[in-house]
């Protein structure tokens, strides 16, 4: 863990020195409440990406400098997950300041004019993340949409590792559990992990593949801790569970999502942290049958 921490800090220092926009700085524009704020035109999810412009050319020397720095330190960051041991853990995300919230992206069905749900993310009274909103299963009368009603919060993509501002994957191979500390309202929420099975960014062949599992809450004023093994996450595409399951590729994790679905009405989920844990007593790869009985 010591090695893990230092190498990551160094990477963060490098990016700061080379004046690259860090993850938190990019989403710094809003106020104190992180708001799901769909544009009136309903443009979809990827509004934060700007088209390539002349200004990007100016960044090339910066990227080159960063890349050479990374190359010099290549042995350091290779050590990231080489020494995992039983009970070792890492905080994937610890919500303890407003800065930490701003990197997350909120999406609802309203984004593409497919519903009327609203979602917000802000700092709660106890200084943790509060994901709340109003879920509406009302279907817009456009003759196309059949079902509506979801709110989702999506983690940022890993920006450290490659240089050139290229997005990297999260590597979670050292861990086999996800641990969350939260306080809910009695609903079931959906955790989903977007993971690539090989083609990489830019390919949309598997872009709708998700590995999901519900997060059950009890409601009330008490904090809860959930420990869910990765083996229980099932493969689904466009929300449809797949006949042929595949185990989750933990070295190609793109994003981690928390979603509210199903029941109409206001919801709130307070989250302290999302952590990864290694438990050597659990050696299951997937909880679902892998054999194929078809001819």
């Amino acid at each position: 863990m010591q090695l893990l921490k230092t190498s990551r800090n160094i990477l963060q220092k490098i990016t700061k020195r080379s004046s690259l926009p860090s993850v938190t700085q990019v989403a710094n524009a809003g106020g104190n409440i992180i708001i799901h704020n769909p544009s009136a035109r309903g443009e979809g999810y990827h509004r934060d990406k700007e088209p390539f412009s002349r200004k990007d050319l100016e960044k090339i020397p910066v990227y080159l400098e960063e890349k050479s720095e990374l190359y010099r330190r290549r042995f350091l960051y290779q050590d990231d997950y080489t020494f995992p041991f039983h009970r070792s853990y890492d905080y994937f995300w610890k919500f303890n300041s407003a800065e930490k919230l701003k990197a997350w992206i909120l999406t609802t069905d309203m984004d593409n004019k497919e519903g009327f749900s609203k979602a917000y993310l802000s700092l709660s009274k106890s200084g943790k993340a509060l994901f709340y909103g109003n879920l509406s299963t009302k279907v817009p009368e456009d003759g196309r949409v059949k079902k509506a009603g979801y709110c989702n919060m999506r983690s940022p993509i890993n920006k450290y590792g490659y240089g050139y501002g290229k997005e990297n994957y999260y590597n979670w191979t050292a861990f086999n559990h996800i641990v969350m500390r939260f306080r809910g309202d009695g609903r079931a929420y959906y955790l989903s992990i977007a993971s690539d099975n090989g083609p990489g960014f830019g390919s949309d062949l598997f872009s709708s593949d998700l590995y999901s599992y519900p997060l059950f809450t009890r409601g009330g004023p008490y904090w809860q801790i959930a420990k869910i093994p990765f083996s229980k996450f099932y493969l689904n595409t466009y929300g449809r569970i797949q006949d042929r399951q595949e185990p989750l590729r933990k070295d190609f994790v793109k994003t981690f999502n928390i979603g509210a679905v199903v029941d109409d009405g206001p919801f709130h989920l307070e989250i302290d942290y999302i952590a990864l844990l290694r438990d050597d007593n659990h050696d299951e790869v997937t909880a679902y049958e892998m054999y194929d009985l078809r001819m």
């Binding site: 809003g30 106020g31 708001i35 704020n37 544009s39 917000y120 802000s122 709340y132």
Partner: peptide, 15 residues
């Protein structure tokens, strides 16, 4: 809290 947030959202425009 929900009402507070809804009243402080600017309608339309990129976030």
């Amino acid at each position: 809290i929900l009402n507070y947030a809804e009243n402080h959202v600017k309608e339309g425009g990129p976030s």
